[in-house]
Amino acid sequence: MPDAIIRAQGLTKSFDKGDLALEDVSFDIYSGEIFGVIGKSGAGKSTLVRCLNFLERPSAGEVYFQGEALSGMSRKKLYQARQSIGMIFQQFNLLMQRTVLDNVCFPLEIAGWKRETAKKRAAELLELVKLSEKAGTYPAKLSGGQRQRVAIARAVACGPKALLCDEATSALDPETTRDILSLLRDINLRFGITIVVITHEMQVIENLCGRVAVMDAARVVEIGGVREVFSRPKSEAARALINTDGEAAALLRFLGKNGVSIEEVLGHVWHDN
């Protein structure tokens, strides 16, 4: 196995009221992979992803980025580390008073780039996400899919090693979701950026990830290859996720009527692939 680029070790997060949002979460994310975290809303996924770049400080446990413990970093060092970990969000979070181009310039300004070089780099990135013609427009004029493309361009502007995606497609329609997923896959392949995907949608994990962690009630209950976890779920939570998925549930009902087991069908499907 390659080196872990992000290592979470015993992450625990409790909030003021004493509720545990994370409880003893550990995993390794390997360099270059697309790693998924799935769970129902309230399972602790968002807190987990925010702990990975210390937007939330864990109450206990440690995060290592490229072997270095985040908790041991000075403020300045942490800000620099964050420049190597891009992040995109469900609500895109673009600067509404800046043009598309200037949004992409923003992280470069933070990293201390010169205005001219930053602009050139931002223009290249807009080309990558196919939004060159929107460079001078303001985000308010863009569709959700276009906004997320700008956010992706912005998140990879500084050439990060990893990209965290917090429900990045949950506000988008299925077709736009597919576009964004293929853009993410493309970025992963072309630049070798490690991607961490947080979602409650099975389909996102199936289409994008190699490995997946299943979260339930603040804990990671299962972790492994996507096919393995979805075909032979060991945990109650993973089974529930598969069963509540609309398509899967319909398929199961159909199979049930015809006396075929799901394992049999899935075995065939994956064998054929």
Binding site: Y79, Q83, N93, L94, F106, P107, I110, C158
Partner: peptide
């Protein structure tokens, strides 16, 4: 100001002053 936008800036390594 949308707290998400502030969070996004933090995630890019912006300091509080920036």
């Amino acid at each position: 100001v949308d707290s998400g936008v502030i969070e996004a800036a933090s995630s890019m390594g912006a300091s509080p002053l920036q």
